[in-house]
Design a protein around this nucleic acid. Structure first.
Length: 571
DNA sequence: GCCGTTTTCGGCCCGACTGTTTTCAGTCG
């Protein structure tokens, strides 16, 4: 899979062209192509081999040739030549908020600044004020920007973003002039990580709201403070942008502020072709400037003869084309989920009893819950011996007799050992209602070995689900490389499901791979991997991944009623 | 550099905020 590599080449070229002051539309062409390549569900090497590169939106003759060069040689001559023309380190300067290509170039041309350290030194020595168009204020802003780059501006997990935005929205709602309010941006699109928090408000008194907002106790620093728009930094270094519009513009502003940028550009392009103009205030007839929509999001889409497109799909990954053809999927919803299929108890490394977990699931309205404790080899997680796992089975049977309103499925998260064999014998495995298999050791094996381990597990007639298939852990462990084509094929053939693990730092499979799985005919299962009652709530995150992956209810097996699920679990 | 129910050339989304400016460029989303 060289998709990311190709995208990175094009993004790097875009950066270099920007500093050179090249045609902005050319730069955008590179960025757009890079973005589309990133979200491909197919391997770009395959597409290249089959001569279908120009079918990728934003890729024409020129970029197709460049992709072929990258795939074949791992290098790109055009990039290397360009790099020679742009001094090293100058690109790094653009990481500082407030410094764009123009300023970066100016700093290099006049002061030979390359790199952020150098920039800091020169700013502290007041060498920057006095350059054309730059004075003390800019110098201060640059120093402030450098602090930001050093400490913060890291992306937070979706869960963290949901928590923080919830708090801020609750505070904003208390302001007297706030009418409607909604999260927007990548948070509303439920991206797996979020860089900043965007909030949209309607009010007839925007200035008052902005003035109050920048005085909130969580505000550590004000980045911008205008009449209708303000940006602040919280004490944890998270940027929060708030925008206020009038009631009549709520829908248009929500579309604009939710993005993605690529989705918006695509929409505005369509509007233009239809003689319309879209901005955050509404949809206007270009000639007369008459507003024809704005109040509700659905109205904006309607002016382009489109149905409402759910925020999770707004990435310009084909959702507009699908909407035009009436082929948008009916996305799975949290309320469709009938049970959690990956839950731990105190028998292994969980903190609550089976009964406590089951009762909590019942409270969530589930019909069933699979208790999937760890198997014997995973000592760090107090994996269960054969003897203990059978004792646990007795407890589950007893509970199922007394506990009404929910069915406890006896399950296991069985280790896929380093040679691909499973951590319990078939004699044991056959006693479970549901078997979830997962890799917890030997992450550093080759792509081939890891793929074969998973294939071997899929091949077992007792394995129902492969949990967290790529093993990634946000911030500590990257996803290992797998041959997904082979895995999807085997999973489809054997009716084995792949998990969307909802644990906030996992979200594994991710949206792109989940969508590829669906397109290969594989069904998915969403599990929380909860170790305490509270973590059962992360089901929302898993559903969000599923929605971003275009999954419908039928693509997710734990939307099935108990009877149907049990039928489906027989391989 | 891409793209085409007005086009193979001439377009390419659109506006807020800031800091430096007497009317706007740069940056950001």
């Amino acid at each position: 899979m060289k998709n990311i590599e190709v995208a990175e080449f094009f993004e790097a070229i875009a950066d270099l062209l920007e500093v050179k002051g090249d045609n902005p539309f050319k730069i955008r062409a590179y960025r757009k192509a890079a973005q589309n390549i990133r979200s491909l569900t197919e391997d770009i090497e395959t597409i290249a081999e089959e001569g279908r590169l120009e079918e990728i939106p934003g890729v024409g003759k020129d970029l197709a040739a460049k992709i072929v060069e990258i795939v074949k040689t791992g290098r790109l001559k055009h990039y290397e030549e360009l790099k020679k023309k742009v001094p090293e380190g100058i690109i790094d300067l653009m990481a500082v908020p407030g410094i764009g290509p123009k300023t970066a170039k100016l700093l290099y041309d006049k002061l030979k600044i390359k790199g952020i350290e150098d920039l800091e030194k020169k700013a502290k020595a007041h060498k920057i004020s006095g350059l054309p168009g730059l004075k003390e204020k800019t110098e201060e802003n640059i120093l402030r920007g450098i602090e930001l780059v050093k400490k913060v501006l890291k992306r937070m997990s979706l869960q963290e973003a949901l928590n923080l935005s919830g708090e801020i929205i609750a505070q904003l709602k208390k302001l007297p002039d706030v009418k409607r309010i909604s999260p927007a941006g990548s948070l509303r699109r439920m991206k797996e990580t979020v860089r900043d928090i965007d909030i949209l408000i309607t009010s007839t008194n925007p200035k008052k709201i902005m003035d109050a907002f920048v005085k909130f106790p969580i505000v550590k620093d004000i980045l911008a403070h205008g009449e209708t728009k303000a940006s602040i930094l919280t004490d944890n270094g998270v940027q929060v942008d708030v925008r206020v519009v009038e009631e009549d513009s709520y829908g248009a502003a929500l579309v604009y502020f939710t993005g993605s940028q690529a989705h918006n550009i695509h929409m505005r392009h369509m509007a233009k072709k239809a003689g319309l103009k879209i901005n955050e205030y509404g949809v206007f007839i270009e000639k007369t400037n008459k507003r024809i929509a704005g109040k509700e999001e659905a109205d904006i889409y309607k002016t382009l003869s489109l149905p409402f497109i759910p925020p999770e799909l707004r990435e310009d990954r084909g959702e507009i084309e699908a909407a035009l053809k009436g082929k948008l999927p009916q996305l799975v919803e949290l309320s469709d989920i009938k049970g959690d299929i990956h839950v731990h108890s105190e028998w292994s490394d969980g903190e609550h009893s089976i009964e406590e977990m089951a009762r909590a699931c019942r409270k969530r309205g589930y019909e069933y819950v699979a208790i999937t404790d760890h198997s014997k080899s995973l000592r760090v997680a107090r994996g269960l011996s054969e003897k203990d796992v059978l004792k646990r089975l007795d407890e589950i049977m007893a509970l199922n007799k007394t506990l009404r309103g929910i069915r406890i499925l006896s399950g296991v998260e069985v280790d896929i050992l380093e040679d691909g064999s499973l951590d319990y014998s078939e004699d044991i495995l056959k006693r479970f209602d549901i078997v979830v298999a997962a890799i917890h050791t030997g992450f550093k094996q080759s792509k081939e070995k890891l793929t074969n381990r998973i294939l071997k597990a899929i091949d077992s007639r007792f394995v129902n689900i492969v949990a967290h298939p790529t093993g990634r852990l946000r911030g500590s462990r990257p996803a290992y490389d797998l041959d997904f084509d082979k895995i999807f094929e085997a999973a489809k053939k054997t009716r084995t499901f792949l998990e969307i693990n909802s644990y906030p730092d996992r979200l594994d499979l991710d949206d792109v791979n989940s969508r590829a799985a669906k397109e290969s005919g594989v069904k998915l299962a969403i599990g929380t991997d909860a170790h305490v009652v509270d973590q059962l709530g992360s089901m929302l995150l898993g559903v969000s991944v599923a929605r971003r992956a275009w999954l419908t209810k039928r693509d997710v097996v734990n939307t099935f009623r108990l009877e149907e699920l049990l039928k489906f679990l027989r391989k």
